[in-house]
Amino acid sequence: MTKQKKKICLLLAGGTWTTTKNKEVLSVSKPADIEPWLSSMSELSILADTEVNLIAGEDQEIGPVVWEKLAKFIVSKHKNCDGFIIVTKPDRLVATTVALNFLLQNLSTTIIATASQMSGAYVQEKKELVNQLLTSQSGLGLRANLINAIQVAPEPMPAPAIMFGSRLVLGTKAKQERQKGLHLFTSVDGDYLAKVDFGITLKNDLRYSSKAPEIFSKINSNILVIEDIPNLDWSWSDKINKDYQAVLIKMSSDELESAKREQIKKLDVPVILYHPYYLNHHQEAIALTSCTWEVAMIKTMWAAANFTNKKDFTNKIKSNITGEFLNV
């Protein structure tokens, strides 16, 4: 029984909670935690040679700084690895995957993100919840998620994707849900890259981009996010133009009230109106539809960090950069 093992890079940024046979919770917050954590899941070594790197601990916030660090690491190592697996906090899983989608466009390396059902620095506070999961689910899910992620990581994928539970879904299509206290990641259009039952079955007609890779190192930008509620006035400080690089407005209807349109006209920074399906034409703002809310936010951050010229910024927001627009 011999076979060539693949080399998989495991990048840790929270979401690392797992349990030992003695029901002890292990997680990774510092480099010394890696060895016992990995030893508790020694079955992973059957599938691949894994190189584990700590990008951020359980106590750290997962946001643009970590995303830039992840992207930089992947770019520096992608020629030496057969695939990358990102482990991060479940409530940051979609945003992290989408951020890598915009930072590392059309990179031929496969990037799979996954997580444990639980994360954070304080195990004691969540002990009761852990025990509930151990009884109902026989674990925190990371072990199985990692086995499935390692199995698909050497396969070519169209873009960064999330392996969680029994599904593999593109980050740009992923939607986080909660069911009976458990995290669940579904596809907004019901389209999955793979499903897990007895083995992993990849979708037959995966589509790959023929565009050349485009690498970006920046995504950290200041965006003002507003959730618009009709008949509820906006009040904002005069410093918006100074403090923010863009304003992103989450619309609950397809039309913006005239008073609010006048407010937007006075701003120098670009304003994006987001609605998942449809928006009427508003000359004073950029309309962004047919994508998930996470895509809208991360794309705005990425465009603001990399395109200071308003025309370039507008073009990028309107373009289907990595296939993030959905047929809805």
Partner: peptide, 11 residues
């Protein structure tokens, strides 16, 4: 290998 890793993870 996948099935072996899975089986061991499930004890």
């Amino acid at each position: 290998s996948y099935f072996v890793a899975w089986a061991l993870s499930q004890n």
